[in-house]
Nucleic acid binder design. Structure first.
Lengths: 309, 309
DNA sequence: GGCGATTATTCGTATCTGCCGAATAATGTA
DNA sequence: TACATTATTCGGCAGATACGAATAATCGCC
């Protein structure tokens, strides 16, 4: 098939944007050697050098810059055109890539997964549970689900859960050995289990009383990046945990975890599905949003532990 | 290479525009069966029927109409972008398709062909000598060369020859048997060799005197669509011919052909290179235009037979 | 209404192209 | 200066792709 020219152009776009053959090859799902050949073939066909490259750097030539500027929008239009024909299809189909933090993965997605996939057999869900990378545009996800306050401003947000709050908790065993903190400042002298967001950032603990907000950088000898691990550690009495109340409701109800500083509880917030506002909403994403609207989390059980607003 | 999707789309565009698989296959340079498979693959991949077809008719579905409307401009933009990088190339290259009538093919193109191809080895000339099909857009030619008055109004025209005129001539042998016509009307009683333009149309003979124009539909027992054949027939005394003066100058100078009704000579006109005004001027076409400017037809020899204005 | 010409499609096959992996070379950094 | 990283080359294999003949379907014409 004579589509080689276009495949070459797409490869060129990817290399130009990544500035790196190996990385581009990963995105294009091919071997770096293949990519190298493709670019060479393109330049040979056009009789113009598009990328100036050494083994350590890749940069655009002037010709390459101009070409990229013109073909990138054209390719975008082409992809959007292909997306748009889904309007003429009876059932939505395709792959939906989601970036979801672990809590909504468990609380929001997991309960509806089976029914959703059954109702839409032509849709493939590619769920990346990741507490770190919030930028769905950079990661090329179609959408994400995360706690409201961490979502960037320029995202379209769709509420997918009842409001909840993040609170500090500890096991009875821990509280028997330490005095219950009365103010957020008291936490400074406690063993706090910290949560790592991304590669470097640690989650600060925020509290609020009489509209006065306090951010505390706690300390302790355990840092995790997994909520379930934090729950386990907290239940074992290692230290004070800081997590979404809704996620711990069973443990709290069973007395395995004891909330503290509840009069300092921060504002309630929800988990939202979010996506880049300017990008086209694919049919599978539309279907998921509608499905989550039609299948809200059961209010009754949530009410038991006072999660609902 | 994963360019299959694009090849499919291009095939779809061609079929949609041609409304015919076999014809589209010719343009795409592939077997009709291959094209059939490609379209089927595309529809299968998109899970949408794009072309409603029987063995006798091909038409677009609603989805196909929408898709075509969106991807056609994108493909056009892509091709133009590829064209534009030729600005970054040292030497123009590519194929230049020309539609030329037989007279300028001989008088304008033939003399410079060798030098042009030598100077631009990367350019391939595809010259279609054709007196009938004037529409270069429909025929997908890059440009054409024809006598001024037959060129459509919306074309960009570049003069490529000294002005000449089309006159009636006859051989001495013919004139010895017939009386020399004094007015265009007299031609009605003469044996005139007619010229066929296209499939049906016959060239009318036009004359002019004191700004009064006359169009004569002459008659005779010979119709040709080849200028050299007309010259031969006229020289043989079969009848009166009607051709470009510049093309016959040697025969006229040698007395083999005798001009007539010269006081009724129509307006002088030139042969022009022309191309669609809105379409991009490719580098090879630019090169040809410049080359023809730099290598004009020798004025001196033309002046000998009073061709130049 | 039936025949013929035209045209899309199916299927099996031969060819070829694209793709990969290992080895190589080149480059920037510690 | 040595090392790690990264683009590139080359040979071979696997999978796909394009073709041609046969088939089926349809429209025009007599």
């Amino acid at each position: 098939m004579r589509g080689a020219e276009f495949a070459e152009l797409r490869a060129f776009i990817e290399v130009a944007e990544q500035g790196n053959f190996s990385r581009a090859a990963i995105f294009l799902d091919m071997a770096p050697s293949t990519l190298s050949q493709i670019i060479r073939a393109l330049e040979e066909r056009l009789k113009v050098r598009l990328l100036q490259r050494t083994t350590r750097s890749v940069s655009l030539t002037e010709a390459g810059t101009h070409l990229l500027a013109r073909i990138r929008p054209a390719f975008k239009e082409l992809n959007e055109a292909l997306e748009s024909i889904s309007d003429f299809r009876d059932a939505p189909m395709g792959t939906l890539r989601l970036s979801v933090s672990s809590i909504p993965a468990q609380m929001i997605l997991a309960p509806v997964l089976k029914d959703f996939l059954t109702q839409y057999p032509a849709i493939t869900l590619d769920i990346d549970v990741d507490n770190a990378n919030i930028d769905i545009v950079k990661g090329r996800y179609d959408a994400g689900i995360r706690y409201g306050r961490v979502i960037a401003q320029d995202m379209v947000m769709v509420q997918t859960s009842a409001p909840s709050r993040i609170i500090a908790v500890a096991a009875p065993a821990y509280l028997s050995r330490h005095v219950m903190p009365k103010t957020p400042q008291d936490l400074q002298h406690h063993e706090c289990i910290r949560f790592r967001i991304g590669n470097q950032q640690l989650l600060t603990w925020s509290f609020e009383k009489n509209k006065k907000k306090i951010e505390i950088a706690v300390s302790g000898s355990l840092i995790v990046n997994n909520v379930d691990l934090m729950i386990k550690a907290t239940r074992d009495g290692i230290g004070i945990g800081y997590m979404a109340e809704a996620y711990m409701r069973e443990d709290i109800a069973a007395g395995k975890l004891v909330p503290m500083l509840t009069d300092w509880s921060p504002a309630y917030d929800s988990w939202y599905l979010y996506y880049a506002s300017r990008q086209h909403v694919s049919a599978p994403l539309k279907a998921l949003i509608q499905f989550l609207r039609d299948h809200p989390q059961q209010k009754s059980s949530a009410a038991k532990t006072d999660i609902s607003s």
